[in-house]
Computed example of a mutant assay.
Amino acid sequence: MALFDHLGISVADLPRSIAQYDPVMTALGCTRRDADDSVSWSLGEEELILFPARDAESGPHEHGQVGWQHLAFAVDSRDEVDRLHAIAVEAGWTAVREPKLYPRFNERYYATFIEDDNGIRLEFMHNPPRETAAQSDA
Score class of each variant (00 low, 15 high):
F51G: 07
G64M: 10
P23A: 03
R108K: 12
P15M: 13
A2C: 06
S40Q: 07
E131P: 07
E62R: 15
D55F: 10
W68L: 10
P60K: 04
R83H: 10
R121H: 07
D137T: 12
Y21M: 03
E62K: 06
Q20I: 00
D82W: 03
R33P: 04
S17H: 02
E46Q: 14
L43Y: 10
Y109M: 05
A35W: 11
T94S: 12
A72M: 11
E123V: 08
C30I: 00
G29D: 08
S136D: 11
A35C: 11
A56S: 12
N106F: 13
V39M: 09
N127P: 05
V75H: 03
K100T: 02
P103F: 01
H70I: 10
G67F: 02
I114T: 05
D117A: 15
E98L: 00
E62M: 13
P60W: 04
A27L: 03
S40R: 07
N118V: 02
R78K: 14
P99K: 03
D117H: 15
I87R: 04
A12Y: 03
G64S: 13
D137Y: 04
G119T: 06
D76L: 08
S10W: 05
W93H: 13
G92H: 01
D5V: 09
Y21E: 06
A27V: 02
T26F: 00
